[in-house]
């Protein structure tokens, strides 16, 4: 089970958009195999860089408004938010080194 906090349609604004931190939102669903594969990798990245980035999860089945607003058409989709704006999008499960490279700007 992932260690990441779950966010919802109801608290997305407060938890993500209005946050002072850099936040990666992992858009996922129960039925998505690749989401399960990438989840522990994201947990590792979160714990290794907890001072740089916070990682939260949004279940697209339970929170369709947010998924629709950010035009999610494929999961896992990982979006990095800073100051309420999307500053990076990564789509699809990737090996840890590849994800770290994609997110390098936010982990250093």
């Amino acid at each position: 089970m992932s260690t990441a906090t779950a966010v919802t349609d109801a608290n997305f604004e407060a938890e993500v958009l209005n946050s002072d931190e850099t936040i990666l939102v992992d858009f996922w669903a129960e039925w998505c195999g690749p989401c399960r594969a990438v989840s522990p990798i994201l947990d590792q990245i979160a714990s290794e860089h907890s001072d740089k980035i916070k990682i939260v999860k949004l279940n697209v089945d339970d929170n369709p408004q947010t998924a629709m607003k950010y035009q999610i058409t494929s999961i896992p989709a990982m979006k990095v938010y800073r100051g309420g704006e999307v500053v990076k999008t990564v789509i699809g499960a990737k090996p840890k080194p590849a994800l770290e490279a994609d997110l390098a700007d936010f982990l250093a």
Binding site: P34, I75, A77, I91, G92
Partner: peptide, 16 residues
């Protein structure tokens, strides 16, 4: 790919 182009209906169909 992942922006409307997909190889996996069961993965991504939900979004259409």
């Amino acid at each position: 790919s992942g922006r409307g182009v997909s190889w996996c209906a069961t993965c991504d169909g939900f979004f259409f």
